[in-house]
């Protein structure tokens, strides 16, 4: 963060916090991509040093400034519902202060990296306790239901989340060039087996190992709210349980972390058949995202080896989609 920007943010934070002596004494870029930046900032505030995170967009991407404000309001709603999230502190929607809107939240300690999380027997008090805790977090997220004027940016809830999902995936495939018969096969299977519509709840839509900050006591933060939407809560359970998000630890069906039964027990009132439907949907969704990511590389708009390699996850997902729909393996 250059001096000028840091001074502008500091001045704004003094006003927002009502502390004229507030001072930013350290700022380190945690992660910066083409779109977002996350800064770890240490702040002297009312006599103590506080650890915060400043989340913003690059100035070049002002068109997507709404998501930061939206994410802040989602954090507020989640916190009010008892979900463990980084405490949202301040939102600055004025792009002239730092070049783009930003918000500040409390910094959370813990481990999120998937491959480390699934290997640990100790995180969250052990696998069973942690899977239960994840079920409880999801239940709290799903206690948020429309209508919610504070979350108006989410739009109207779909009348039938399952059929809306199928339509959205097909539309995404139609935007790409290569035909995807195996993914179509999975979608058609979903269409035949679609569960009856249920009342809409807030779904996180990326609640999986890797986006969950954990320590030995439990969940320290549910992160990455940018895909949240109104939908069927079973979608979140299916996404978490999908084999492709178990980071290789297939025996622990809840995200490679713990037993499925413990997750369900923590959540309470799970329709297992519906979760299984959304688990197949999860593999399809990830395959379609991977196709889109590779296309960003292939088209030349964003040459990037990681995006390119993501495309090569698609065949493996296709194989699993076919197996899940009962196609005999050769």
């Amino acid at each position: 963060m250059d001096e000028q920007r840091r001074a502008a943010v500091e001045t704004w934070l003094r006003g927002a916090s009502g502390d004229p002596a507030l001072a930013i004494i350290g700022a380190v870029l945690l992660s910066g991509g083409a779109i977002q930046q996350n800064w770890a900032i240490d702040v002297e505030h009312r006599g103590s040093v506080e650890a915060w995170v400043l989340r913003t967009d690059n100035a070049a991407t002002l068109a997507v400034s709404l998501p930061r404000a939206a994410e802040y309001r989602l954090l507020q709603a989640a916190q009010a519902a008892g979900v463990t999230v980084p405490e949202p502190l301040f939102l600055c929607e004025d792009a002239t202060v730092a070049g783009a809107p930003f918000f500040v939240m409390r910094r959370v300690k813990g481990i999120a990296a998937g491959y480390r999380v699934v290997k640990s027997e100790l995180l969250g008090g052990g696998r069973v306790a942690l899977a239960e805790a994840l079920g409880q977090e999801l239940a709290r997220i799903h206690s948020i239901r429309p209508p919610r004027p504070d979350l108006a940016f989410l739009g109207d809830a779909p009348a039938d989340a399952a059929r809306a999902f199928i339509a959205a995936q097909r539309a995404a495939l139609d935007r790409q060039h290569a035909p995807r018969p195996a993914i179509e096969w999975g979608l058609r299977h979903l269409e035949r087996e679609a569960p009856a519509p249920v009342p809409a709840v807030l779904t996180h839509n990326d609640f999986r190992t890797g986006n969950l900050m954990l320590d030995e006591q439990g969940v320290t933060a549910v992160l990455d709210w940018e895909f949240a939407a109104w939908g069927d809560g079973h979608a979140d359970l299916g996404w978490l349980c999908a084999k492709c998000w178990r980071f290789g630890n297939l025996a622990q069906e809840a995200g490679g972390i713990g037993p499925r039964a413990a997750l369900y027990a923590g959540y309470g009132g799970v329709d297992d058949a519906s979760v299984r439907w959304w688990e197949l949907a999860a593999h399809i969704r990830w395959a379609v995202i991977a196709v889109d990511q590779a296309a960003r590389h292939i088209s030349g708009t964003e040459p990037n080896l990681e995006l390119a390699l993501t495309g090569h996850i698609v065949p493996e997902l296709e194989l699993e989609i076919l197996r899940m729909t009962g196609v005999p393996d050769a």
Binding site: W185, V314, P315, E316, L319, P328
Partner: peptide, 14 residues
């Protein structure tokens, strides 16, 4: 046919 295709694709990718 889908299974054969997916397996052939996995031979390269995964």
């Amino acid at each position: 046919a889908l299974m054969d295709l997916a397996r052939a694709r996995c031979t390269v990718s995964a």
